[in-house]
Design a protein around this nucleic acid. Sequence first.
DNA 1: CTGACTGCAAACGTTTTGCACGGTA
DNA 2: TACCGTGCAAAACGTTTGCAGTCAG
Lengths: 139, 139
Amino acid sequence: MQNYKTRLKEYRLKATPQRMYMIEEIEKRGHIDIDTLYESLKNIFPYISLATVYKNINSMTENGFLTEVKIPKLKTRYELSKEDHAHLLCRECGKLTDISVESEPMTKNAQLKSGYKIEKTLVTFEGICPACQKKDKGK
Amino acid sequence: MQNYKTRLKEYRLKATPQRMYMIEEIEKRGHIDIDTLYESLKNIFPYISLATVYKNINSMTENGFLTEVKIPKLKTRYELSKEDHAHLLCRECGKLTDISVESEPMTKNAQLKSGYKIEKTLVTFEGICPACQKKDKGK
DNA sequence: CTGACTGCAAACGTTTTGCACGGTA
DNA sequence: TACCGTGCAAAACGTTTGCAGTCAG
């Protein structure tokens, strides 16, 4: 928590209550879309404006404090920026989670093949989570 | 070309001139966003409506003829659906290209680790393309 | 000939902007 | 105290819808 205050300072952003709670909420959920975040915030700040949510998301995303997560057919979500990781999406229940993977061999290969200097590798897996697999068997 | 007519039929879509040209344009460019596509189409069909472009993109995406490509900070683009492949984005010139990679080892690993039944793996590389690397050296 | 598609205009939803006030540093 | 951030309202933007006429199959 105090941690975030310090990090915000590095980014020249003030630690307003609204902003702090946004960060807490994003951390708690892992990934969140604008609407869900707004609804959540209204419980704590009944008069909060959607514009404030957008402004904060934008300022925190521009400087890298937050990261955009775009997945086909889903609303854009946001997460706290952290070490590289892949995303796992369950096609059935829609749950989105993080997972760490070894992507270097693949990346190195792509780099050789293409001549690109690759700086970042984004990976998303789509499938069925364990819980939904169980449910499906029951049918 | 005739090829696409047949494929459209499978999807129960009519081969209108507008739609055929959209497909040609998407094939030619590889990936394209709505606005660029609309501008392109206006050269051929001066009275074409943006609504038509949206309707066609949606109908062709829903049934899998086209695939959405979502990348952080970029407008959504569309490509013809084809065998799995990764995307390479140049951070400098913005060029987006396809590349085939061996992602199975990584996917298998993620599957074991997570217990998910993984059906699809999406991979995007971000970096600097060979041409831009050369340009940069000159500076 | 019939249903699907087109173009147009209006509606709708999402995101951004300008401004006056208030709060953080 | 000086700015940055907030809330509000309006504007801007992107996407969808309804409809009447047209075209592909």
